[in-house]
């Protein structure tokens, strides 16, 4: 009980001073997209809400998790589909998971 409230207490509820709280949150918590930010320039797997996957190099992304990829191979449940795509913008609306390569 006490441990949990301690964490919550550190996150200020007050939003009247917009810059200060944001900084404090950033100090105490790791945001999911900050982790993905570290994968820029590396290989990544994008899993969609359907059975499709896109494997490629992560170039960038935004808050909607729209994703820019390079040298992309599309996969469905049967395996690779189509040719390598040099560069693309993938709509974030269908993204379920991002899987950075571990190396």
């Amino acid at each position: 009980m006490s441990g949990q409230s301690e964490i919550i207490d550190r996150v200020p509820k007050d939003e009247s001073a917009p810059q200060q709280p944001e900084e404090e949150v950033a100090l105490n918590t790791i945001l999911p997209l900050e982790v993905i930010d570290k994968s820029i320039g590396q290989n990544i797997k994008i899993l969609l809400t359907n059975d499709k996957e896109f494997h490629g190099t992560l170039v960038g992304f935004d808050d909607y998790v729209n994703v820019v990829l390079e040298n992309v191979q599309e996969y469905d449940s049967d395996g690779p589909k189509g040719k390598i795509i040099k560069k693309m913008l993938l709509n974030g609306g269908l993204v379920a998971m991002l899987v950075p390569s571990i190396n």
Partner: peptide
């Protein structure tokens, strides 16, 4: 090249 900062290569830049 080193990995670019998160602002370049963003969806907006691509578009």
């Amino acid at each position: 090249p080193p990995p670019p900062p998160s602002t370049s290569g963003s969806p907006t830049d691509f578009l």
